[in-house]
Design a protein around this nucleic acid. Structure first.
Length: 207
DNA sequence: ACCCAGGTGGCCC
DNA sequence: GGGCCACATGGG
């Protein structure tokens, strides 16, 4: 593939910041957490329309209550305890329901997250999108970062990035996802790192 | 006392 | 297909 404009911009960001996973590893060290696949999946729900700082507070509560896992949340049910633990993340009644339904889906249909991710990307995506409270961004975050599957995540940071560099005039989810995927090598690590760098760069600009 | 932040579903037209 | 609204907390 010849290097497209988007790919060149990615390489510039890479030169400027380096690999984004080192920031993730550092975050895990600071927060004393494993940052494993199940935590990524839970965080993907909690971070909907919410500052990551607030998500951290909710994750901390779940961890301290020793229920930061899919099976534990499923056992908890959509109940008061779960709601109170994730309260700092905002929209907590809705998010408790969404989390519970997602965890129930994984446990009762597959038994484990690993088994679920053994299915093809398209099947996983379709099944996630069929769940209440999971739209394209949440589904794709789970698939890319927890499932290591090659699908590009579009979010508010990505849209600001597209506007900043004048990469498109349309901003619908499917259109932008196609734009990135057609202009980059199909590579999980590149998708993960690029999206993480877009977020990093977006946060950097504000200060 | 405002204003903002990695969305989604349910309306309505 | 799009526009508007509800959902809620913590931090500036």
């Amino acid at each position: 593939m010849s290097k497209t404009r988007i790919y060149k911009i990615y390489l510039q960001l890479l030169k400027k910041y380096g690999l984004a996973n080192k920031f993730w590893k550092k975050w895990c060290q600071i927060k004393k957490t494993k940052g494993d696949k199940e935590e990524i999946l839970i965080g993907a729900i909690l971070t909907q329309r919410t500052n990551w700082k607030n998500v951290e507070l909710a994750l901390k509560n779940l961890k301290e209550a020793k229920v930061l896992s899919i099976k534990k949340i499923y056992q908890l049910g959509n109940q008061r305890l779960l709601k109170s633990l994730i309260r700092p993340a905002g929209f907590y009644q809705q998010k408790a329901k969404r989390l519970f339904l997602l965890c129930r889906f994984i446990v009762t249909n597959y038994g484990s997250l690993e088994k679920f991710f053994e299915k093809d990307l398209e099947i996983c995506r379709k099944q996630l999108l069929a769940l209440y409270g999971i739209g394209p961004e949440t589904a794709d975050s789970i698939l890319l970062y927890a499932g290591q599957k090659p699908i590009f995540v579009i979010d508010e940071y990505t849209r600001r990035f597209v506007k900043k560099y004048n990469l498109a005039k349309k901003f619908s989810y499917d259109f932008l996802q196609k734009l990135f995927q057609e202009n980059l090598p199909k590579d999980v690590k590149i998708y993960q790192n690029f999206h993480a760098l877009i977020v990093l760069d977006g946060k950097n600009e504000k200060h």
